[in-house]
Amino acid sequence: MSQNAAAVKTPKPTSRKDMTKFQWTLKEIARNKTAYFMIAPFMILFLIFTVFPVVLSIVLSFTEFNLLEFPTFIFMDNYIRLFLDDDIFLTAVQNTLVFASITGPASYLISLLVAWFINELTPKVRAVVTLIFYAPSIAGSVYLIWATLFSGDSYGYVNAWLMEFGFITEPILWFNDADYVMPLCIVVALWTSLGTSFLSFIAGLQTIDKSLYEAGAVDGVRNRWQELWYITLPTMKPQLMFGAVMAITNSFGFGGVVTALCGFPSVDYAAHTIMHHLDDYGGQRFEVGYSSTIAVVLFVMMVGSNLVIKKLLSKVGQ
């Protein structure tokens, strides 16, 4: 009896209209318990090893912290110092922007076009070509070979070659010359840039339903460029978005290769990027607050360019 009475008092809402937003959310959460179990292992680790450190860094960017004494709040002082008092940082921003605006789009387009070109090859040939293009990016520190090729003495392959043909009479100190450092680092960056996004483009192209192309041919797609623009690219938008984020993080986060090839700091700060500036303060001077500020600024730049690219990609296929 009492059970019946309770049921009458609060009739169980059945459709979404009868519920408040909160009630509906609770019901949906209960209904999708499995989903939460599935993301739980990842999310717990993600909270511990990514979210917590990032939040802490953002908080630290408003403090002065040298790892020894307890951090003291100085509010916006780090940001003011960064933009008004730090000339090297402005050089780093400039270099990073030059670097990112060249290597980001270039590596993205090369990855996409090469993936598209080789997609029509037979599987065996495709595997070999994929390996040739992908190998430099998984081979670890193998990019150091560029230091041998462009070595500053006459044993360097490029110098010896140029001298033999009489272009130069004395070896060029490639990685110690402010004029050459940046272009060379861009070349090496492009050499190693056909990485995970390249593979994801190839995989994305392979999972496209072939019947779409037949339908396209019937609908008046006349050449391969139209096919690419109206069928292939719109179908692989998730992969395009992934590749864009990869291009942003790689081109803005570039620094390790420069340090390995030119040493730190690079000559006249000619290849000094925001990453170098950050490592300098965070890893060597232990000004953790200040380096966190640099990280936050870098983060904002990346998020901004991601928004722009998202806008651009939404125009694909139109």
């Binding site: 959310t25 999708n32 990032v54 860094s57 790892l67 993080t249 890893g283 380096s291 983060f299 991601n306």
Partner: peptide
């Protein structure tokens, strides 16, 4: 699976890709 919260969880994960890992190593 269409569960509440999936959109912003995903957004946070993508954004996290853009935060530098040198500064987070102290917290880690």
């Amino acid at each position: 699976i269409k569960f509440p919260g999936r959109r912003w969880i995903f957004e946070v994960i993508v954004l996290s890709l853009m935060f530098n890992s040198t500064v987070t190593s102290i917290a880690n």
